[in-house]
């Protein structure tokens, strides 16, 4: 596969910044993998945790968030590299807010389910 055209624009960033951007991508990928592992683990290890259908839906939603996060982390890496190449400001990340809200909401739902468990 050829490198996309934007990789030939601007100047190649300092390798330290390139590698920092790569590590940020990997940190998001690990967050995504943690969501995947958590979703399968809840489904398998806590079968009485919620009625079957609710448990499956919650776990599949967590896995779907993990999949979306993996795609978004690649796009974010590409955008940041483009910004660095062209000397532009790094774009504001809505990922931080979205993940904070998502994880908080998941924790709230799980807490409520544990409390109302018969």
């Amino acid at each position: 596969m050829r490198e996309p055209a934007w990789r030939r624009t601007g100047t190649t960033p300092d390798y330290r910044f390139s590698l920092a951007n790569e590590r940020t991508f990997l940190a998001w990928i690990r967050t995504s993998l943690a969501l995947l592992a958590g979703s399968v683990a809840i489904d398998q290890l806590a079968p009485q945790f919620a009625p079957g259908a609710i448990r499956v839906v919650l776990c599949v939603v967590l896995a779907a968030i993990g999949a979306v996060l993996a795609v978004v982390s690649y796009r974010r890496w590409a955008h940041q590299e483009q910004a660095m190449r062209n000397g532009q400001e790094l774009s504001h990340s809505w990922m931080l807010l979205a993940m904070t809200l998502g994880v908080s909401l998941a924790a709230l739902v799980f807490a409520v389910l544990i409390l109302i468990r018969p």
């Binding site: 490198e3 190649t12 990928i29 995947l36 999949a67 795609v71």
Partner: peptide
Amino acid sequence: GPGTLVLRAAAASVVALAIAA
């Protein structure tokens, strides 16, 4: 620096794992 192919393959492998999960 990383090539786009490597990072795309890494992200795609996580998406495939999410489908399997």
